[in-house]
Simulated scan of single mutants.
Amino acid sequence: MTNHRSGSEVAYEEWEQGRARTLTTKTFQRVQPSLPQDSLFYWSSVGAVDWGPKFCDEYNAEIARLIEERGVPDWAPGLRRLMPTDCQAALAKYETEDTDFLSDAQRWLVARISGLRDSIAPVSAVAHIPDRGLLLTVRRTPQRLYFDVFDLLELKYMSHYIVDS
């Protein structure tokens, strides 16, 4: 397969649409959070194609140029991220038993990730953080709390944190 558009063209277009990301040629585990701690944007891999490295370089360079020129966009997922220290406070403030507001796609995302983590402990609490477009699930064990953060706006598994109880 040949890619006919440059990475910089695609990056500019995705920036304008509010869906820029960071590209890499690395491969990821099948199910893992796709917003690294130090990133403003979700990571995506194009490592399985021969044009991947050049495309990634062009794309990421254009995103860096746009940040330099325009600043960090207010739609960047990294700006909505919950940090591990925020999770307990968010749970206390936004805990809910009602998840009827979730769309089918959002429900599928949460169920897919949660099903993979059921061996740790069942989900014991859910928090909806509407101003950030996030859903937080919690699993409790006697020693630890396991937090999974879901981006309901972009249908992404954002973060996973383990903190001592």
Rank of each mutant, 00 (worst) to 15 (best):
P142R: 10
R65E: 01
V10E: 03
A125Q: 10
I129D: 01
F55C: 02
V46C: 06
R70D: 15
A76R: 03
R21C: 06
A92L: 13
D57R: 07
P130A: 08
R21H: 09
A121T: 11
Y94N: 06
S39F: 08
Q143H: 11
D50N: 13
L35F: 04
T2C: 06
F150H: 04
V72K: 14
Y161A: 03
D151Y: 00
Q106Y: 10
S103Q: 12
K93V: 11
Y12F: 13
G52H: 04
Y157I: 04
S165C: 14
R139N: 07
G78F: 02
S39P: 02
Y157R: 12
S6T: 10
F41Y: 07
G133P: 02
A20K: 00
L23H: 00
A11K: 03
S39N: 09
L102N: 01
S114P: 07
A11H: 02
D50L: 13
W51Q: 09
V123T: 13
S44P: 01
Q88T: 10
W51K: 09
A11R: 01
A121W: 00
S119I: 10
R19L: 11
Y94G: 05
Q143W: 08
A127M: 03
S114N: 13
T96G: 14
E9A: 12
S119W: 12
I67V: 14
L134I: 04
L102C: 08
I120N: 09
S39T: 06
L91D: 04
T137Y: 00
R107H: 13
N3G: 09
N3L: 09
Q143D: 12
T25G: 02
C56G: 00
A105S: 15
L155R: 10
S6Y: 03
M1C: 11
D151P: 06
N3S: 11
D100F: 10
P36V: 02
M1R: 14
Y94S: 09
